[in-house]
Design a protein around this nucleic acid. Sequence first.
DNA 1: TAGATTGTTAATCGATTAACAATC
DNA 2: TAGATTGTTAATCGATTAACAATC
Lengths: 212, 212
Amino acid sequence: MAKNSISNSVIRRLPRYYRFLGELETNGYVRISSRELSEKMGLTASQIRQDFNCFGEFGQQGYGYNVSDLRDEIGKILGLDRKTPMILIGAGNLGKAIATHLDFVSKGFTLIGAFDVNPEIIGKNIAGLTVMDVNGLAEFCAENKPVAAILCVPMSAAAESAERLIGYGIKAFWNFTHYDLRMEHKDIIVENVHLGDSLTTLSYGLNALYDK
Amino acid sequence: MAKNSISNSVIRRLPRYYRFLGELETNGYVRISSRELSEKMGLTASQIRQDFNCFGEFGQQGYGYNVSDLRDEIGKILGLDRKTPMILIGAGNLGKAIATHLDFVSKGFTLIGAFDVNPEIIGKNIAGLTVMDVNGLAEFCAENKPVAAILCVPMSAAAESAERLIGYGIKAFWNFTHYDLRMEHKDIIVENVHLGDSLTTLSYGLNALYDK
DNA sequence: TAGATTGTTAATCGATTAACAATC
DNA sequence: TAGATTGTTAATCGATTAACAATC
């Protein structure tokens, strides 16, 4: 589908394009030029055209881009037409919030199971799922073949959990721990969310304020 | 403190350096060379030296870096010795999880208040704080002068909440909404966490799997 | 002193921006 | 056709890597 290999910088801009195009569509836009979109998004028109051209020719000279078509194309590129089965590992505060807060289907996933070690959490209902005991994980994976996992366990359990999941056939991780999956497994697909690092970066940003 | 202007790429690596150095210290390391650190972190030794040299000369030729000193320096650069007063706006599932999940003090902040509109949430206790009615926000800010805010409200309320908070003197946002604060306010410090975009990126990553 | 490793300059690589010919 | 705007090539900018002199 995608030409050879698309740079990470481009990929990270795609979800934002997709969101903006959705808003434009909602607001009744039928066509948009790279210049107009660049003004709305705070990018250069050049960059937008370069980005889209990584994947094909979606525009029309003299006209611009058809908003709805372009959005669909980007959706396909992002694989949002899939429903990759995903499980949640660690249904504590954070895991629960993530499972509840997001619309998985519109992002290419379905959440099909949730697991925890804590007896107080097991049996509870989150996002329409009954939290199961991690002891049943092997059996569940054998039966339901989840492909992706949200890793929301404490750091102390991260390495062991990840290794087990890989053993059960999990290929992709949405990783909320600081365990460095990418370093340990070159072949596994990983997207990290490091909330602590993000807050730390905000702290750095405050230097601008205090240094005055 | 920091030389002129440090590139964003460098800044985003600092929290990770800080974490790794903490682990090394825990494991009894006293000194480390850029080469050894590069192997542990999956970077090049060159990059590590370049990064550190943005802020000063922390090493010693022929020896390497003192782990504990270096960590302290990076901590100072990140402003982790501060306790910037921060408030949580939106104490729903996600807001609650974030407030509970993270150690704010070790990241340069103290969480001093939590607010919501929902009567079912107001009065509840999270992270040692009683959730207050947003109606009391103006008064609270006048009295307690929070500098930073976690924005965890629904998209529909994001713009209005942000504008209000800026009016009450908030200078920095940890933004979990898709409202584009940076675009609207060039002078405000913003760190975005776009969970939806992150999950979407993971979906793109799965192309590698399905394309085969 | 000899060996090691930094700090720093130079070379390379990649990403962004500018320019413009192609074309709707 | 004339005007607009893409797709794409070339120029610029910035970040990473390599090399090495300085020095502990």
